[in-house]
Design a protein around this nucleic acid. Structure first.
Lengths: 238, 238
DNA sequence: GCAACAAATATGATGCATCATAATTTTGAT
DNA sequence: ATCAAAATTATGATGCATCATATTTGTTGC
């Protein structure tokens, strides 16, 4: 569940206080990103119901921005409207997961390939640092942090690839997997990280195709645990 | 520009008249799909400005559903908010086009590959019919229809592939290209269609990799005209 | 006690009033 | 006539009242 972390925007009479100069974000976008984070971090469980009024009260805004945000998430299928007034975090199905996996292999493979071509020393160092921290998180048994670092590694590749449009697509895809991954990351944490080393090697040697293959391995093998979990759990209707 | 085609939904006191049983679409979604069609069919030109109140008046609804729809399109970058109250059809840049092209080759290649594996006789016949009609449209000099049939061919592949999630991703990608393609389809109509024949051949023989290569050729060669157009036109700021 | 109907509640959809601000026009001093 | 300041207008953002309906709860007859 979302923590009661307030937005505390209601106290602001106008909305020209803090972060308005560069990004002309409206409240709806703020709520949207808040919910995105909650989804990706697994704070919203599959099947959990969301109520617009309740969220609005929790966040200290009116229903309008919350409705904006939820409608956006429903559109991109990160949330599902089972009926006209029943908004829930959707369950993943096996078929859907396999489709997403195939798409990820293509797109993250592309990102890894371009990243291998482009990466400079500083960017490679950043990737190494992420892996190092992830190793530490696993050693500490901090699955939440490991999950977060795993995701950051994958998106660092897209960032290095210099493909902002691809980044948006992949972000939406990860949004789908967030509630699921958080559920099962603990079981397969090692597998998630082990396959990052071949990726790093390929990037260091600027071997694009090898990087793509390595990411493909990561997605296939690291996701094995997830797939087993899905096939085991009956996935109530969905 | 959008025609003055009305929605005429204002006349409905409640909204339980026609299409509510299966799809619990709200007005916002209706407006969204309307704008999507306008974008894909090139009825909205790059740089054109949209005004919420004006659209609402034109469509006979209040501003709320129009705002819903426009915010969604802004999120997926099919529309751009230059400033807080300046919503426009964005211009395509060369860099963005190249990125989208690389993504399309991966994703539509995947779709073609799966379609080649799956296609049954009826589905192959449908593809052939689309190509035939496209041939006819070109002969008639009907570029708008040719453009539409070209798009339908590409999406028929995704449909045959049986990948609904991929379909959504590709739809959003095509949304980006709609205003651009409509601008230059006339110049390269033949190139758009010629490369569909190798795709058909590969699908008939259920040769997945060949289908992927053929689609890649189609995207690369058919898009050549578009790329030249982009490099010629200075693309005002964007 | 249980089932069927009715009242009450909950909840998303829609329209709209109001606000803050950017864009535009008007006006007035030089 | 020109330019700058002020007034006006335009426009998206936000909040909220109201509506229709699904869901829940309560009541009543058997």
């Amino acid at each position: 569940m979302l923590e009661s972390a307030q937005l505390n925007l209601a106290a602001r009479p106008t909305m020209t206080d803090a972060l308005d100069t560069l990004e002309h974000d409206n409240l709806g976008s703020t709520v949207y990103h808040l919910l995105c984070n909650a989804l990706i971090q697994g704070k919203l469980k599959p099947g959990e119901r969301l109520k617009i009024r309740e969220l609005a009260a929790r966040l200290g805004t009116s229903v309008t921005p919350v409705r904006d945000a939820i409608l956006r998430l429903v559109q991109e299928q990160a949330l599902a409207m089972k009926s006209a007034r029943d908004i829930r975090v959707p369950h993943m199905t096996v078929a859907r997961y396999l489709e997403i996996r195939a798409i990820r292999i293509k797109l993250e493979g592309l990102a890894a390939e371009m990243a291998a071509q482009n990466a400079d020393a500083a960017q490679i160092a950043l990737l190494e640092e992420l892996v190092r921290q992830n190793e530490q998180a696993l050693a500490d048994g901090d699955t939440a942090r490991g999950c977060d670092l795993n995701q950051r590694f994958h998106f660092a590749l897209v960032d290095i690839a210099g493909m902002p449009f691809l980044q948006g697509i992949l972000y939406r895809i990860w949004l789908q997997m967030g509630p699921l991954i958080a559920d099962v990351y603990g079981a397969g944490g090692d597998d998630m990280l082990d396959f990052h080393y071949p990726v790093l090697d390929a990037i260091r040697t600027h071997d694009g195709p090898a990087a793509a293959r390595a990411i493909s391995d990561d997605i296939l093998c690291g996701g094995q645990v997830i797939l087993q979990h899905l096939q085991a759990a009956p996935a109530p209707d969905a």
